[in-house]
Design a protein around this nucleic acid. Structure first.
Length: 424
RNA sequence: AGAGGAGUGGCAGAGUGGUCGAAUGCGGCGGUCUUGAAAACCGUUGUACCGCGAGGUACCGGGGGUUCGAAUCCCUCCUCCUCUGCCA
């Protein structure tokens, strides 16, 4: 979340930024935050004053008791009663203020950086890079949901039986190809210096708040009521939360992790005809990269992370483009996001396969993820993450773009991992 | 899952109702000494909030309670250890 001090010192910048992302009533909410914070400050001053007096009296009582002056002690005790009630009242006002303030701050999204384009939705995203050409498909080319049936590599009906819609069963060469991609993506990341982790795929509430899924995306995660746990929507959550309440030594920066996990999303309200086949699932596999940086370096890192993802797509021989997301289309926690989309030639559609973001201090603020600066003071670090990559849509593009009379050609870089070069 | 034990500053480890934000040791930082280093010695060394400052407040696993006063007593939750049970 945004820090109070930052909001106070940069009121206009914050309001402008929130307007850029089409956050309703930005100015009013910021004013409300500042007013609440004023109240919090003055209440705390009074509260501390009362506690201070009360502490002093308690010490007096302690000394008198030790000297055996019991009656005098009782006299002082009587004086504490009023302070006690006053302290209690002020304490309640204070925690009320703090709760309301927190509630408001949790609702305020990150401020987009200056390079984020204006715009209200997906149409306003700016294509900043394009690579590759659309493959020429045979006359009888079909979309991936037909290919997976005819080659019998993914079975949605089985998934429907076992669980429900959006939980496919990968079979035979389909399963093998999934495993190949996971290993390929992990190996490529490790070559880039990322340290692999295998985090839990179930998280607690604190972790959900830490990276900003809660309270913003409550309802989009699967909830385990008995334990109040959540199924992760992305490995970003457990991996970034490894650094909750951590002070990182500057010499250990940057922190770079990669992890493969299944991801679970309820996708409530976002189903429709446009999300057939692998385009949208409730459970899917993803390899995620997470970095933690000194604020001075985070945008260079964002750039390198994008390059890494682009490299993967190029090695897979996929046509892709890079979008600089506009203010209205960015995620809640992000300061800037680049989306990578691959072209799925039979659907004739661009599919988002990666989203690379710099959260600046937004997550670090909730996580209390800090470093000690040259000034000897504590400062928040910057967190970043990106998909590298999400599998289903990559698979959809590979299947569609590489189909031919002979079968589906496996990208060369994957062949050492699959052990076959064609799905026939 | 049941029984018992335990969670204190970067680490180790005192502290069972009153100047305890917390002894002591190690580590870290600064200094003296030294050609340099080690050793020794001296000093310093948590975080957050309020305040221009002096200073104040809070925090001893989390939350709640008792009390004038809680690291210390009570309740509850979490985590770890030991034993028993179960299990990939």
């Amino acid at each position: 979340m945004l820090q109070l001090a930052y909001i106070r010192d940069n009121k206009e910048k914050v309001v402008d930024g929130l307007n850029k992302r089409r956050f309703a009533k930005a100015a009013e909410i910021i004013e409300e935050v500042i007013a609440l914070d004023d109240q919090r400050k003055s209440t705390q001053a009074k509260h501390d004053q009362v506690l201070s007096e009360s502490n002093a009296l308690s010490k007096q009582i302690g000394m008198l008791m030790r000297e055996g002056k019991k009656e005098e002690a009782e006299g002082v005790k009587a004086k504490t009663a009023d302070l006690k009630t006053e302290g209690k009242e002020l304490g309640e006002i204070l925690s009320n203020c703090e709760d309301k303030l927190k509630e408001l701050l949790y609702l305020i999204p990150n401020v987009p950086n200056n390079n984020v384009p204006e715009g209200g939705g997906a149409d306003d995203n700016v294509v900043v890079y394009e690579h590759g050409t659309t493959p020429e498909l045979p006359e009888n080319a079909v979309p991936h949901w037909e290919l997976i049936k005819s080659y019998d590599i993914i079975d949605f009906d089985l998934g429907n039986k076992i669980t429900g819609a959006g939980f496919p069963v990968y079979k035979g060469k389909g399963a093998r190809l999934q495993r190949a991609m996971i290993n390929f993506f992990l190996d490529e990341a490790i070559k880039e210096g990322y340290v692999e982790v295998q985090p839990p795929i179930v998280i607690n509430e604190d972790s959900g708040y830490g990276t900003g899924q809660l309270p913003d995306k409550d309802g989009q995660m699967y909830h385990i009521g008995e334990e109040n746990f959540f199924l992760i929507p992305t490995a970003e959550v457990p991996i970034t939360n490894m650094y909750r309440d951590v002070i990182v030594d500057v010499k250990d920066l940057p922190v770079k992790h990669v992890g493969f996990t299944p991801c679970f999303r309820r996708e409530a309200g976002s189903w429709g005809a446009h999300v057939r086949g692998l385009n949208r699932l409730h459970q899917f596999d993803k390899v995620e990269i997470v970095e933690i940086h000194h604020p001075d370096n985070s945008y260079d890192a964002l750039d390198r992370m994008c390059k890494h993802v682009q490299g993967l797509l190029e090695k897979l021989g996929l046509q892709y483009r890079v979008l600089n997301l506009c203010g209205g289309d960015m995620g809640f926690t992000s300061a800037q996001t680049f989306d990578m989309e691959v072209y799925s030639a039979a659907q004739k559609k661009w599919l988002e396969v990666s989203s690379v973001s710099n959260f600046e201090t937004f997550q670090a603020s909730r996580l209390k993820l800090r470093y000690r600066g040259d000034d000897k003071k504590m400062h928040l670090l910057h967190t970043l993450n990106g998909s590298a990559l999400a599998l289903p849509r990559i698979l959809a593009a590979i299947l569609e773009n590489n189909q031919s009379e002979e079968g589906i050609r496996i990208p060369e870089v994957l062949v050492p991992y699959t052990g076959f070069d064609m799905i026939r």
